[in-house]
């Protein structure tokens, strides 16, 4: 049901763009107003979400330590998994953000008769790594629509990505990888009972939306043949704040940017904010140095305590009897 609902949502979004452009000819709305709004919502929403997190303090130093602490000088500290300084934390975060270090650790627990066994389980790590990196490269590649002249770095990236001489226009390897990785991420959600059990619309929808974006982009590039020069004229007009619309660009392009806009709007109010959240995760971005330097809780307050004097008052006789020293005889 949740899957169907998510699929339906994506189809409705695509149809909206199709109807809007193909039938109602709202090119300005779908080509200019919505993209502008979407990017504003995306950036604004992202900032609001991060600021909202920032407004809550991190009262305690709750690093999850995944290696040997700093201890005696002859015991080798794991400076990345259990950092005590900023450099260690930076390394840890870099490994988390770029290589998904924690996910790499993943294991699979199986129960075989009366035994538990732990197997390797790095497919999720691999799939998500492929997805995120492909996504990044695809985003960078899209800069060719926003920069004129196109910088050499983007040209190089693109020629590497289209290294394989397949089809016309040349097939991008990351397109294939992205779709494959997303398909994997989707399939594991619907095929593995446990994962399906915990999955919600908020999990299916982004995957299907991304697949929709990928599909519309791929269809535009490889099947319907969108006039890229016209697309670039539109995008360049957008980024230089002198928007013009074009009627020569196919509807599939409008579907594509409408889905992208939907994603941009959806992003800040969804789990996709993990992109920003990971940087703020206190179990990862803090050094385990709270025995070395005092960590301050901004809302630390005095609490009611049972003081020694009260204790001694209560047990004075008994303490005296067993010869314990007393404050007041």
């Amino acid at each position: 049901m949740k899957v169907w609902f998510s699929l339906l949502a994506v189809i409705i979004l695509a149809l909206t763009a199709w109807v809007g452009v193909e039938i109602l000819h709202l090119n300005t709305l779908f080509g200019i107003i919505i993209p502008y709004t979407a990017i504003a919502v995306f950036i604004g929403g992202f900032i609001i979400r991060v600021v909202r997190w920032g407004k809550s303090p991190v009262p305690f130093c709750i690093t999850t330590t995944c290696g040997q602490q700093q201890s005696l000088p002859w015991i080798k500290q794991n400076k990345i998994e259990n950092p005590t300084n900023t450099w260690g934390v930076i390394w840890r975060m870099v490994l988390e953000v770029t290589l998904f270090r924690s996910l790499f650790r993943n294991t699979k627990t199986e129960k075989i008769e009366d035994k538990l066994v732990f197997g390797s389980a790095q497919w999720l790590w691999f799939g998500s790594l492929v997805f995120h990196w492909s996504m990044l490269i695809i985003l960078l590649r899209h800069l060719r629509f926003f920069l004129n002249p196109v910088p050499g770095l983007i040209i190089g990236l693109e020629s590497l990505d289209s290294f394989l001489q397949i089809g016309v226009p040349l097939l991008y390897i990351t397109d294939v990888l992205l779709v494959a990785a997303l398909t994997y991420l989707f399939l594991r959600r619907v095929m593995i009972p446990n994962i399906k059990y915990i999955s919600q619309i908020a999990d299916y929808f982004p995957v299907l939306l991304l697949l929709g974006i990928a599909a519309s982009g791929i269809l535009g590039r490889y099947v319907y043949g969108v006039d890229v020069a016209a697309v670039k004229e539109l995008t360049m007009s957008l980024v230089s704040f002198k928007p013009t619309t074009s009627t020569t660009i196919g509807t599939i392009f409008y579907i594509h940017i409408f889905l992208v806009s939907s994603l941009a709007v959806y992003f800040p109010c969804s789990k996709l904010m993990h992109a920003g959240g990971i940087f703020l995760s206190p179990t990862r971005n803090l050094a385990n140095n709270s025995r070395i330097e005092r960590y301050i809780n901004p809302w630390n307050y005095e609490v009611e305590k049972h003081h020694y004097s009260e204790y001694e008052d209560e047990f004075r006789d008994k303490m005296r009897k067993v010869g314990l020293p007393l404050e007041k005889e």
């Binding site: 199986e110 075989i112 035994k115 066994v117 732990f118 197997g119 390797s120």
Partner: peptide, 8 residues
């Protein structure tokens, strides 16, 4: 190898 690792 995976089975070896799991001891099964």
């Amino acid at each position: 190898l995976g089975a070896d690792k799991k001891g099964i």
